[in-house]
Design a binder for these strands. Structure first.
Lengths: 188, 188
DNA sequence: GACCGAAGTGGTACTAAGTTCCATCTTGGT
DNA sequence: ACCAAGATGGAACTTAGTACCACTTCGGTC
């Protein structure tokens, strides 16, 4: 039922884009009223979020199935194969999934723009420090570093608020970023 | 001018919350019309985003000022001191800033909920693999790992689309995550 | 000093998301 | 056949955001 509406909606999203598709349209094509749509989904975005959550659980299952001996970072990497691995068996494999992933990021909100903003601000300097690659995908490493660092800051800030500031933010940030501290090359 | 409106808005946000403050209210208190407000800011969220962007540039400046010899991850960490370091000189220092940071994350959008969703789904397993800490802030390390991994996936997916899939996503993801690969402890 | 164009401003009306409330229909049990 | 409950649809409302138009104001020109 939810699945049926969802299917209709994603067809329309694919045809016209997310913003150009109204809830009224989705409801009409799915054969229910606007009111009922909102009773089921609450928000238009929840359609996308719901699908993302499904994948999230799949990834979690894959993660849980990784061997105990595997290091966490590696286990995560392997779990991500679920979405990253080009699957030859399914019809339209990971392209649609990554499209959805990417859409979900750009769709929802400005939070993303904020992070993108910080990323685009910080990444050039990091890229420079990593050495002067100017390959098309050359700055991926810089972006990964910056995005992860922001994530650590988010996590630390959240914990900081959760403990009412009784632990200094800098300590928490050290804790978070120490966990990730990679064998980075020395500045060029 | 923008600053003046911004000041009024943040006072109202603090008093009533972001959602319970209408643009009409802000405009009225700042002495301009709703129409003019939108001419200046475009969106209500841009008020918050704008402030975040300011901090972003401050951090970028601090980052650029770090010694060349410093490793990128460390340089980022030091640049983040701008927001993380408890500043004794200013009146209400980093608490408000982090409040804003945190609000900006929860405010804008569901993208954040999605990431939070994935994080909350994946983190317990990672926490378990890191060893059985159950401290209040004990899962910070797990959250940092998961959030960073998600960031790498985002960056890789973005690059993948930018190069029209001519480089396999798995390769890009390896590239991104190898950059971050930490000296993680072996699963307990 | 009157005139004029441009830019900034406000007002009105619109679309669309999301909420609330009420009326209606269906449906399962008595 | 009846009745109560839950699902559905409709109408009205609030708010963000957009489009358009009218008004003012102000600097320059004749």
């Amino acid at each position: 039922m939810r699945a049926e509406v969802s299917e209709v909606a994603f067809r329309l999203f694919a045809e016209q884009g997310f913003d150009n598709t109204t809830v009224e349209q989705i409801a009409a094509e799915a054969g229910l009223s606007r009111t009922t749509f909102f009773r089921y989904f609450g928000t238009k975005e929840e359609l996308v979020l719901g699908k993302m959550a499904e994948f999230g659980h799949e990834v979690a299952a894959a993660l849980a199935a990784r061997p105990e001996s595997e290091r966490p970072w590696e286990a995560l990497r392997r779990a991500f194969d679920l979405v990253a691995q080009p699957r030859v068996d399914e019809s339209e494999p990971s392209m649609n999934l990554m499209q959805l992933f990417s859409d979900a990021c750009s769709l929802m909100t400005r939070q993303w723009e904020k992070e993108q903003g910080w990323q685009s601000i910080l990444a050039p300097e990091i890229a420079r420090r990593l050495g002067g690659d100017t390959d098309p995908a050359g700055d991926l490493r810089a972006r990964a570093l910056v995005a992860s660092a922001i994530s650590c800051l988010d996590a630390a800030a959240d914990t900081w608020r959760a403990v009412d500031g009784t632990i200094p933010l800098s300590v928490l940030l050290d804790q978070a970023m120490d966990t990730l501290r990679a064998a980075n090359p020395t500045g060029h």
